[in-house]
């Protein structure tokens, strides 16, 4: 049926959700994807956890992958965590009151990200390959996406780091397609686009 869509110029539309724990590089990846296809970034990146506290969207991104013409709604989700401690923000030079406000917003962001689990068509689970992948949050996110039959691609991010161990991610989630990327440097990003094109 794709050739019919191609002939008539109609593009298949889907929503791509970026899920994962805080600081795994979701916004860096969302920016990389968005800049590649639209020339504009989605959001602000920082080393402070929970920088993204609301779902950030870039809608109607037109892309062509694997000969398919697609329209993608890119959804950069707040990082999902089981705890949000305002004291974690203090070493970054944030005042106590601001840190408490940030924690409040982060908790709301997590609730929002969980609500959106039902509304994405394809999920990228973005993991920091320098960290232990075998955490309950990662398993919970993947388990819930799986239960909803949402296609999942695991992104082993930050492979440009010397500490990266993408094989650990592959071994933890061997039943899924794992794509090793550096969202920061753009390494392997085309493999990711190809994989997205394959599952849509």
């Amino acid at each position: 049926m794709h050739w019919i869509a191609g002939v008539f110029g109609r593009r298949k539309e889907f929503s791509l959700g970026l899920y994962g724990p805080p600081n795994s590089g979701k916004t860096t990846l969302a920016n990389r994807i968005s800049v590649d296809w639209t020339g504009e970034p989605v959001g602000i990146v920082s080393e402070i956890p929970h920088e993204t506290r609301q779902v950030q969207k870039k809608e109607k991104i037109q892309l062509s992958v694997n000969g398919k013409k697609l329209v993608m709604n890119l959804l950069d989700m707040p990082g999902i965590a089981t705890k949000v401690d305002y004291r974690e923000f203090l070493p970054f030079g944030i005042e106590v009151k601001q840190a408490q406000q940030r924690a409040k917003e982060a908790t709301k962001g997590i609730i929002e990200a969980i609500k959106w689990l039902e509304n994405v068509n394809v999920a990228l689970v973005v993991l920091d390959s320098t960290e232990d992948p075998y955490t309950q949050v990662n398993l919970t996110i993947i388990g819930n996406l799986e239960a909803r039959k949402i296609p999942i691609l695991i992104v082993a991010n930050k492979v440009d780091s010397k500490k990266a161990k993408p094989d650990r991610v592959k071994s933890a989630f061997s039943q899924y397609q794992v794509i090793e990327v550096s969202a920061l440097k753009g390494d392997n990003i085309h493999k990711l686009y190809k994989a997205i094109g394959d599952v849509v």
Partner: peptide, 14 residues
């Protein structure tokens, strides 16, 4: 996780 986020306070981080 969702219900926990609703009850986080300064003394209960999660």
């Amino acid at each position: 996780i969702r219900e926990t986020m609703k009850i986080i306070t300064k003394s209960f981080p999660g």
